[in-house]
Structures are given as structure tokens and as C-alpha cells.
Design a protein around this nucleic acid. Structure first.
Lengths: 115, 115
DNA sequence: CGCTAACGTTAGCGAAAACTGACATTTAGT
DNA sequence: ACTAAATGTCAGTTTTCGCTAACGTTAGCG
């Protein structure tokens, strides 16, 4: 868990504009130019974001003549989901352990007062 | 989806050291000093990471005398899991749509060659 | 080949972020 | 009250990151 792939994906998703791009190509396959047109930054900036997302495995690229079509790559999110689920499970365990510890203390108190 | 809370949590998790901290307190509740001792950066740096994680809702803080005990807060991950699941679902839809589109094209081809 | 369209790539700049060192704060012990 | 321990906070420095402008590249058209 938390390998280079997870790290890269997490850092890619940390940027709001990259998340917006990802949502844009989540339902429709779009060309780089179309994606860039959806934002108020330079085409260069969007291109860099696309590269980062692609390297993170979150984007699939397909070439059509001089155009490059992008779409979201759900498999790229699998590792992250695993990471979050693991963390979720571990944290829940801690919660239980802490609750049990508190209960143990009050049990001792009750045992002391009862004995 | 993708509200301020999600953004904050995502940015907090984008930092490798913060993920390490989170894993450290996922199973055991630890004091700030103990957490800091686990890394080769200054205690100051770790303290700042703890603040960021706490503000992101990923960490629970409890005071015991002069010490501050930290533990992972699973509820803080709920929003992220939702975010990923939404994205996952949307992307899968795209996959299906593209497959159907290709199938449509080859159907046309077959119809053309058959016609 | 010359030209254009659609992209990616590189260099450099400014803002954000991570880190360090010095200082302030709070709690417990004597 | 004094001291020590545990920790947070602030100011300043270095590093990272997102952005723009200029340039390079590839595919199609005449």
C-alpha cells in the first residue's frame, strides 16, 4: 500500500483543476483542445495537467490524426480506493480498541466499587 | 461533491509524510513527540503536518497533561471515498459507452460490406 | 514542398508549501 | 516559585508547483 502509483495518483488529484479535467472526461472522451477550452488558463497549462494525469494512470490517451483524445481511466482509481479502504478499516479498529480500553477502565472501577 | 472538505483532505493526503503519520496513528494512539521521533525531520515540521491533518478532519486530538495524543479519524475519509466512488462510476459509464460506440461502428462496417 | 492545425515541450517566473531555528505556552514535579 | 518536559507558533529560507510565452513536432491539405 502507498506505493509510487498511489503517491502519484494522490498528488495528481490534489489539484482542483486536475479534478475538474477528470470530471470533464469522466463521461465523454474529449480532445486536448476541447478540454483546454473549458478553462481560463493557457492550453499549455492544461497540457501539463493532462500529462500529469496520464502519468498517474488516471487518464487514457488515444490519437486520432493530429488530435489526442482523453478519457478517464477508472482502473487508475482502484489503488486509491484500496488505500482508503485499508486506512478506513485500520482507523475503525483503533476506534474499537479505544472504546474497549475506556470500557475496561470503567469495568475496573465498577469491579473495585463492587468488590 | 468536491467541496472544500474534500479538497482539504485530498491536499493533506497528497504529502507522503502526512500519509506516513496517518498510518502511524491508524492502529495506535500516539503523542506528538512519539510521532515526530519516527521521522528524520524536525519536530516543528511534524507539528505542522499534524495541524494540517487535524484541520482536514483526518486526525483526532486528545490532551493528556502536557501531551497531545493523536489518532486517525475514519470519518474524515468518508467524503473522499464518496468522491472516488462517484468518479469510478462515471468512468465506468464511459467505458461502456465507448465499447458500445465501437460495436456500433463495426456493425455499420458489416452492414456496409453486407449491403 | 509549403502551409496550417492541433499538440507537446522547455525555460523562466511568481506563489504556495515544506522545512528549520528560535521563542512562547502549558502542565507537572520539587 | 522554579524547573523541566511536551508541544505549538512565528519568521525566514529553500523547494515545489502551476502558469505563461516561445519553440518544436506531427498529421493532413494544396
Amino acid at each position: 500500500m502507498d506505493d509510487d502509483a498511489t503517491d502519484e495518483a494522490l498528488r495528481a488529484l490534489a489539484e482542483p483543476r486536475r479534478r475538474a479535467i477528470l470530471r470533464l472526461v469522466a463521461r465523454d472522451e474529449l480532445a486536448a483542445g476541447e478540454i483546454a477550452a473549458a478553462f481560463e488558463v493557457t492550453r499549455t497549462a492544461v497540457s501539463q495537467h493532462l500529462t500529469i494525469l496520464k502519468n498517474a494512470g488516471l487518464l487514457a490517451e488515444r490519437r486520432d490524426g493530429t488530435r489526442r483524445l482523453y478519457r478517464a481511466r477508472p482502473e487508475g482509481l482502484a489503488g486509491l480506493r484500496q488505500f482508503l479502504d485499508d486506512m478506513w478499516g485500520a482507523s475503525l479498529d483503533v476506534g474499537r480498541r479505544l472504546v474497549e480500553a475506556e470500557r475496561g477502565i470503567s469495568d475496573d472501577d465498577q469491579a473495585a466499587s463492587a468488590g
